[in-house]
Design a protein around this nucleic acid. Sequence first.
DNA 1: TAGTGGTCTAGACCACCGG
DNA 2: CGGTGGTCTAGACCACTAT
Lengths: 240, 240
Amino acid sequence: MTADGRLSWRAVRDRIHARILSGHYAPGDRLPRDADIADTLGCARSTVQRAMQDLSDSGIVERRRKGGTRVRPDPVTRATFEIPVTRREVEAKGGRYGYQLIRRALEETPRTIAATLEIGAPERMLRVEALHLSDGRPFMLEDRWISTATAPEILDVDLSVESANEWLVVNRPYSRCDVRFSAEAAGEREAELLGCAPGSALFVIDRTTWIGTRPITTVKAATAPGYELLTRTPGDQGAM
Amino acid sequence: MTADGRLSWRAVRDRIHARILSGHYAPGDRLPRDADIADTLGCARSTVQRAMQDLSDSGIVERRRKGGTRVRPDPVTRATFEIPVTRREVEAKGGRYGYQLIRRALEETPRTIAATLEIGAPERMLRVEALHLSDGRPFMLEDRWISTATAPEILDVDLSVESANEWLVVNRPYSRCDVRFSAEAAGEREAELLGCAPGSALFVIDRTTWIGTRPITTVKAATAPGYELLTRTPGDQGAM
DNA sequence: TAGTGGTCTAGACCACCGG
DNA sequence: CGGTGGTCTAGACCACTAT
């Protein structure tokens, strides 16, 4: 509710949501038209529209022109995660950030990497391996390929000082990003670098970014044992 | 653009985004007021507002009353994942779904579970262990606690036929959901049930749901080796 | 306190798609 | 083709917060 007696779109949303939760509208049911809901509640149609859009974004209802609005018959859990720059992530967890360059080389991408980056043929790119530390202990090991065609300046960056992660995030904003989570057993090399036993279960984040259709970078980040990723809740302004 | 010469909010968004990508507006920079952008582009302020809201939701800009709109100085990757009902997930991957109840018992929750569910004291709840199968092979092992106070009807459900996962999703929509991803080594028991070697790296999804402040269920789902979770992209209507 | 984003309204027209 | 959601506009007022 706003200060006067008008309904806010959040109030409308909550009201409709409550009716769904209570079973008044069951999965698969069709809801009244926006205009009718607006009339019933005594607010503008655009207010209902906003509320509905939020419910739709949350995966609670499905909306189709002419088909109307239906309670989603097959609910899904929709969760949003935030992956900050690694330095910030370490600091946010109360650690002192450290960084260590392990390897830097120009190499031809394997076919798998070329496919991931959606380029037709393998290409010579900058490959960077680096370790992020928290309080001096290994936190995350990244194995990265950077397109020197898309980001040639990276060749002049002293990656022993500034991480590619940080440089790219500031200097090569992306327009598209694919993320993949998985679990993987630590290999010999990873185990040694991450300071854990070989075979330890590692949480792995694969990320690939593009600017337009041009690939920027793809990185496999293996986190030290114990890493967790939580849904973003604080503030939650993003519920919209 | 709409059919006539008017700018759509997406067009406005892309235009502003392009200026950020090109470095015209750098991280930390303040953008013009919505009203000025509207004047410049020749559209209504609310159109700019919509565009800005999308950029804000995507974590690209930050907006504050009086403070104006700024390019987020510290970009984050924001990724949304969808976790469907397990049966649907198996089927979507082209598998034949199977299900097997392993254990069903009334037990007192350990303190950790009580804390997760945000209830003050341990409580007697229904504990269910079950295995989801894909083409007859183990796909996901779930260990679940269900509040019999919030969902007493679950006691009458034949969980050897219908999975708690499915029943709850249809009969107990939630108003809040916490999700946590992690990697974990398979224990003896898990390994046997999932048909993998002990110590295998498993992708684990912890989920807890509430209706209002009342806990519904908390579940730890350990997936068979090889499981991956991808950002939801298709259609992408949810970019908003 | 003044400036900026946030929201509501009322009305119009468009785009999509189910019957 | 007709019904429904999607979007744009123009204007008003509110809410937050930087200065």
